[in-house]
Amino acid sequence: MRTSIGRVRGLGSAKEGAHHWWTHRLTAGSNLLLMLWFIASIAMLPGYDYATIQSWLSSPWAAVPMALLIVSVFMHFKLGLQVVIEDYSHAESRVVLLVLLNLFVVAAGATAIFSILKLAFAAGAVS
């Protein structure tokens, strides 16, 4: 998502801001769809006990959008928190916070996706 004149000149502070900006907008769009699905699904669930949640997430109709939601939302908030850190944090603390942010996003995102897959696949293996 760069204009041709921008590509030819090759200028700009870090030469990659356009990609950050565009990915933030794309994931904003996918977040909008996926989070509205999530909010509506949560509202429509008959209960919030273990059996209900487990059977809901064992369906591919819930597990696939849920995994997509994790990818989309985590990419989006990684980009967003990165901007917040770059705006308000300076010098060494900025580097430390940016590294921690990347570690958190990858670790938490992987845990979430593993949990979704475990619920989805375990249900099929038992019955």
């Binding site: 273990y50 949640i53 997430l57 938490a108 979430a112 949990s115 979704i116 619920l119």
Partner: peptide, 8 residues
């Protein structure tokens, strides 16, 4: 993440 991990 805690909600999903605890359910899993």
């Amino acid at each position: 993440v805690a909600w999903l991990a605890s359910a899993a």
